[in-house]
Design a protein around this nucleic acid. Structure first.
Length: 244
DNA sequence: AACCGCACCAACCGCTATTAG
DNA sequence: CCTAATAGCGGTTGGTGCGGT
């Protein structure tokens, strides 16, 4: 017995949203909020499934969304965060106010990936392509690092395996931070451990930090975050591994 | 002007995680 | 604890617009 589809296929509209549908959804959510996405289309008078409504709202209709191209700083932050978090687009988006996971994912696949490849950097591993080839050739000699990688991926909260199963965090420790682009990125950005801790926080607290990001503040700008910053700065490599 | 290939992006699909009963 | 319902995430697809030939 298969899983029931998220919505009845019959009588559910698909494809691009019309202005009328957008208005209905906006008016409904602004007036009532989204108590339960499954109920939204019915209550708002839309022939869409709840999933589609949620997507339309979060990716396009949300009033706090920024439209248009990412700034240079935002783009760098995306690369930076991707090096730490991998393809966790929602986590990356949560740290970029007014941007959506879909938008960042699209941007990554269309612009940044190519840009990095042009620079001779593997967009998956964030390492120089030629150097990666050398590393792969001698992979049998780095068994210790391999086991580290396994530990990392095991603690990966059941992320499904994929072609980029490689863990950026593990690789950065392998690489020692000598790769030019990444070292440049890390010099003027948030420390790796801090970023990951913030990520933990944002996923642990029901999106409160996400709320602050929406309000135009980064989580570490929240009141009381300074204590967290100090705590995190005190974490050494051991502490880092303990967290994960 | 017509065709083609490419890039972009909105939306869908299938899966996992979480929550409620 | 188990199961089903729901929410959310990430990968992928398809429509559209644009530039080149």
């Amino acid at each position: 017995m298969g899983r029931r589809p998220c919505c009845d296929k019959l009588g559910v509209k698909k494809g691009p949203w019309s202005a009328e549908e957008d208005n209905k959804l906006i008016n409904f959510i602004l007036a009532n909020g989204h108590c339960c996405w499954r109920a939204v289309p019915k209550l708002a008078g839309l022939l869409r499934c709840g999933k589609s409504c949620r997507l339309r709202w979060t990716n396009y209709l949300r009033p706090d969304l920024k439209r248009g191209l990412l700034s240079e700083a935002e783009e760098r932050l995306v690369i930076d965060l991707h090096a730490r978090l991998g393809n966790r687009w929602s986590k990356i988006a949560a740290l970029l106010p007014g941007r959506t996971d879909n938008e960042i994912k699209n941007l990554w696949n269309t612009h940044i990936k190519k840009k990095l490849l042009k620079m001779g950097i593997d967009p998956v591993t964030h390492r120089p392509l030629h150097r990666q080839a050398i590393t792969e050739a001698s992979s049998s000699t780095v068994t210790a690092d391999k086991s580290d990688e396994q530990v990392q991926s095991q603690g990966n909260e059941g992320q499904k395996p994929s072609s980029d199963n490689w863990s950026p965090a593990a690789a950065s420790s392998i690489d020692g931070g000598t790769e030019p682009l990444m070292s440049c990125l890390w010099e003027d950005s948030t420390p790796a451990v801090l970023l990951d801790e913030l990520w933990q926080l944002s996923s642990d607290d029901d999106g409160d930090n996400y709320g602050s990001v929406i309000a135009g503040r980064m989580p570490w700008e929240e009141e009381g975050s300074s204590e967290l910053l100090l705590d995190i700065q005190d974490l050494g490599e051991f502490g880092w591994r303990e967290i994960h």
